[in-house]
């Protein structure tokens, strides 16, 4: 329980008191002085209810906080929970290997697949090693190399998106961050295999889209997907990064908003309070969403898959024609 308390976000503070009481009850109960199991159960129920209440009226910036939660399950967590026989594949064969974007082969319910995703850490040390999930050009080039393998051996591709954005560094610029992403966009449009993308945490702009052009794009309930971070938007347009709250609202970055805009195809439900409260449960939801969406795609020909993807993205845009 202590762990759970530590991971409470600012707006979840009302829960802290309940967790404290729950701890007390448990202590008394385990000391054997009195049977408190009824009370413990009731308190657990109360906590669950409060979590549920909190999560129905979340503001966009609170969803941003859940999407960035330090304990939020990462790509490799989901790979372990919902895939089998995973072997990671490393390197872009040009420059290096990017630990911020992992790729590999695996099986989903017996079906061979290619899997890839941005990889964040859960501690500062891990995050430094993973560059906070911000990929360099070699990450995107590795992803493209692996997508080509998927294509040659006719395997579906699953991508997990969870990145603040592509890394803005000197080396990244010198090695062609823009070119690497641009090329992925062009090539993803022409993949001859079924491709499903799932935004699991932060969908940060071009860095997210760089592996995100699936035939189906799904989003976890408390994930976000946007052209720029709320802080970035606020500092440019409102000249004040502290107004991220407003920017988050204005830009429409939540799963619900994006479904309405037609940018994503489906919202995947999360456990009460967010995926980090029950990663196993989250993984089963994701798994069934993938299986459901993959099935009709497996029946399509190469040509139909390309057309499906092209039409999907070709339609995007809202404008007036006079």
């Amino acid at each position: 329980m202590k762990d759970k308390q530590k991971n409470l976000l600012g707006f979840e503070k009302p829960l802290a008191e309940l967790y404290e009481k729950l701890d007390e009850l448990k202590k008394v109960s385990s000391a054997g002085e009195m049977d408190m199991s009824e009370e413990v159960k009731m308190m657990e129920k109360r906590i669950e209810n409060m979590r549920r209440d909190l999560s129905v009226k979340l503001s966009p910036i609170q969803i941003v906080q859940i999407a960035r939660h330090i304990q939020r399950p990462t790509t490799l967590d989901y790979v372990a929970l919902l895939l089998t026989d995973f072997i990671e594949l490393h390197g872009d064969r040009n420059f290096g290997d990017d630990p911020a974007l992992v790729t590999g082969i695996a099986k989903l319910d017996g079906q061979s697949v290619i899997v890839m995703g941005h990889q964040k850490g859960k501690t500062t040390k891990e995050n430094i090693a993973r560059n906070f999930g911000m990929a360099n050009p070699e990450g995107y080039r590795k992803a493209l190399r692996i997508m080509r393998i998927a294509e040659r051996y006719n395997k579906p591709i699953i991508s997990f998106i969870d990145t603040p954005g592509a890394y803005p560094g000197i080396g990244a610029e010198e090695r062609g961050q823009a070119e690497a992403i641009a090329k992925n966009l062009r090539e993803m449009a022409e993949l001859t295999v079924p491709f499903i993308s799932i935004v699991t945490g932060e969908g940060g702009s071009g860095g997210a889209l760089g592996i995100g052009m699936g035939n189906k794009v799904l989003m976890l309930e408390f994930s976000i997907y946007s052209v720029i971070s709320p802080e970035g938007c606020a500092s440019i347009l409102f000249r004040n990064a502290a107004r991220a709250n407003e920017a988050a609202m204005a830009m429409k970055i939540t799963a619900k908003d994006l479904l309405e805009l037609g940018v994503i195809d489906e919202i995947i439900k999360e456990p009460v309070g967010g995926a980090h409260n029950n990663p196993e449960q989250a993984a089963t939801y994701i798994k069934s969403a993938i299986i459901k969406n993959l099935k009709p795609l497996l029946a399509l020909s190469h040509r139909e898959l390309i057309a499906d993807r092209y039409n999907k993205f070709r339609k995007m845009g809202i404008f007036e024609e006079q």
Binding site: I181, A182, L185, A189, S205, G206, L209, M213, Y225, S226, V227, A250, M251, K252, I253, L258, L261, V263, F313, R314, M316, G317, I318
Partner: peptide, 11 residues
């Protein structure tokens, strides 16, 4: 234009 501008990159 929020996310819609990002989608123009794909398009």
């Amino acid at each position: 234009e929020g996310i819609m501008s990002l989608m123009q990159m794909a398009k």
